[in-house]
């Protein structure tokens, strides 16, 4: 009997007002796996994560997490499900009016009745896992970008979630922080026995740590495969993306009228 996937996205479509963003997406993600969703900016990656977290409702199709269809849940059930999800936002989204310690302790205080001493130990444990036990007393504004990202990661795993989502975890990091964060994503996932979804356009870094990759372009999945398959793929789009070529199936030029026409005929009218 095949194992039920932890996350199942079935024939998912989504539109903002009448502008379609995603059309007919299918994915299955199993426990223990780290999966990457790749695609250029604006292709709908963040939107996919918001659909998974129930912050947006699909136009058609569905997303299910742990066997529950997310958009059919009532408020209480949705909040219960979210307690078992962790999300790392693109810029960390740390609470700026709280210290690092209070940020990580936030969910423990809101959702559990644990005594302060135990929360203290848990917070330091989480911070230790991301190598930042020493900064617990600092405010978010006193952290570097890479450190803020790691604190946000510690906060995302505060309640040992079964599903962790990362929105562009590599964006704007220096090479060292980049590989630290990459390694953390993998080790935390394996330690928690969770399942991780990494949304990114950083191909080289994520191919090092993920099990499976989906390529999204113009709201559709255009390629998928294991890291190895993607590296060796001959599909033109994947090749262009993986090797970072400026021109290819994704054209350098934004669609426009033929250049000759534009130069010769579009003489600005002078009154």
């Amino acid at each position: 009997m095949p194992v039920e996937p932890l996350v199942k996205i079935s024939n998912l479509s989504f539109a903002y007002d009448n502008r379609p963003v995603l059309t007919g997406i299918n994915m299955e993600i199993h426990r223990g796996k780290v999966v990457a969703i790749m695609g250029s900016s604006g292709c709908g990656k963040t939107t996919t994560l918001r659909l998974l977290g129930g912050q947006l409702k699909p136009t058609s199709g569905y997303v299910s997490v742990g066997g529950q269809v997310v958009h059919e849940l009532g408020d209480d059930a949705l909040y219960a499900l979210r307690r078992r999800m962790g999300m790392l936002f693109q810029f960390g989204a740390l609470f700026t009016d709280m210290s690092v310690y209070d940020n990580v302790a936030f969910q423990m205080r809101e959702h559990t009745d644990l005594p302060d001493q135990l929360i203290h130990d848990l917070v330091l444990m989480k911070l230790n896992a991301v190598g930042l036990r020493g900064v617990h007393h600092l405010m978010p504004s006193e952290l570097s970008g890479g450190m803020a990202r790691r604190v946000a990661l510690a906060r995302a795993i505060a309640l040992d979630p079964m599903l962790i989502m990362y929105d562009e975890p590599f964006a704007g990091l220096d090479p060292i922080s980049l590989s630290i964060v990459g390694q953390l994503i993998r080790t935390l996932n394996d330690a928690l026995g969770a399942c991780s979804i990494v949304v990114t356009h950083d191909v080289q870094e994520s191919l090092k740590i993920v099990d499976y990759v989906y390529f999204v372009s113009e709201g559709k999945i255009v390629a998928e495969g294991t890291a190895e398959e993607i590296r060796n793929s001959k599909a033109p789009y994947v090749h262009q993306f993986v090797w970072g070529e400026a021109d290819g199936p994704v054209p350098f030029q934004y669609p426009a009228r033929p250049y000759g026409d534009a130069i010769l005929r579009e003489v600005p009218r002078v009154h």
Binding site: G53, A93, T96
Partner: peptide, 25 residues
């Protein structure tokens, strides 16, 4: 300004994803 900035920096979204209602909190 404070609530608007929390929204702009996705702190309110993050709170929602942590199963805490930002209107209440």
């Amino acid at each position: 300004a404070e609530i608007g900035l929390m929204k702009a920096t996705e702190q309110l979204s993050a709170m929602e994803m942590m199963a805490v209602n930002p209107i209440a909190r």
